[in-house]
Nucleic acid binder design. Structure first.
Lengths: 172, 172
DNA sequence: ATATGTATGTAATACTATAACCTGTCAAGT
DNA sequence: ACTTGACAGGTTATAGTATTACATACATAT
């Protein structure tokens, strides 16, 4: 292993450094260890396909479509029909190991596995990168607003489209 | 006309009454008048197809898929190929006359036409109703969070899934 | 009247997602 | 050991959503 497992790699988990370069390899290793632990606690099984899908998401470190994932699975000898990918992705999302980005019809590995968190996604329209930020405050505000009409929120989708730091200044 | 056009029908525009019963007919009439004015100001044209699509969204007063809209258009003699519906819907969204609900792959008429606003959508998972609420506070919180990593937000998608007042208590 | 830009119609296709069914595996209970 | 039942994965087929590309018509301004 590159270095000891830890829970606070700035490059992987800190929202304010989400766009900074960092060591993907160790993130993935750490995340897989945590994923094993979390699914085990939940009585769920991180089977080979599921584990491999999570690895793929971690390796790419960006949002992947179900068919992108499927293509990689198929190339490695797993089933090559859509349900194979969709089922694994659904499992990962249910377990809190991955998130779905509605705007992109895509999936990305969670960077806060095991922590209760309300994720927001910052999607760069220039380079397609996706950063996971904290939607805690935004979600609270939304709950307050919903509460005024008696609506009971269960899940939220909070996504922003714009330009990441790297892409600002390049082209407008 | 049912009554004089106005801009503050509680049933149509007030977030806290979004789920209350109200007079759809006058909402639609009023909204169409405003839509004509707004597009005219923008130098855009509210053509028959576009106007009819907006009417359909207003009549239904719920989120409609592009193919739902298309079916209604086709039944009335308009083109029956997907681009007819998608183009009209895209136009309405660009003009701020309608919104897209990412989570539902559906569209709904805007209830705050002409006002600058950040919409949030409250989607009832039981009755599929969709209320447009104000995401002002949530959006500010999100912008603050994004700003910390240097991300420049251009557009936001803020949606919540849950139970509307009517459906709470019925089935859990 | 003609040119230009814009809007619409149409065909074909691409992309995203799910239903239904079957088979294999593994662990729990007998 | 044997059975059973739950679950995961493989496969076929199909449903649902969206876009590209091209042809036609229409509006407006010269």
């Amino acid at each position: 292993m590159a270095h000891a497992a830890h829970t606070d790699c700035p490059g992987c988990t800190a929202p304010d450094l989400a766009f900074a370069a960092h060591d993907h390899a160790h993130c993935a290793e750490d995340a897989l260890i945590r994923a094993e632990a979390l699914t085990s606690v939940n009585g769920a099984r991180l089977t080979p396909v599921r584990r491999r899908v999570l690895e793929i998401l971690l390796e790419e470190h960006r949002a992947l479509g179900a068919y992108d994932v499927l293509a990689r699975l198929a190339a490695e000898g797993y089933g090559n029909q859509p349900p194979v990918a969709y089922r694994a992705l659904e499992f990962l999302v249910e377990q809190g190991l991955a998130h779905r980005i509605q705007r992109l019809n895509a999936f990305t590995a969670c960077v806060h596995m095991g922590e209760a968190h309300a994720p927001a996604f910052l999607i760069c329209r220039a380079c397609q990168s996706v950063a996971e930020a904290s939607a805690g405050a935004a979600r609270s505000a939304l709950e307050a607003e919903a509460g005024r009409s008696g609506f009971a929120i269960e899940r939220t989708t909070i996504e922003a489209l714009g330009l990441c730091p790297k892409c600002q200044g390049k082209a407008e």
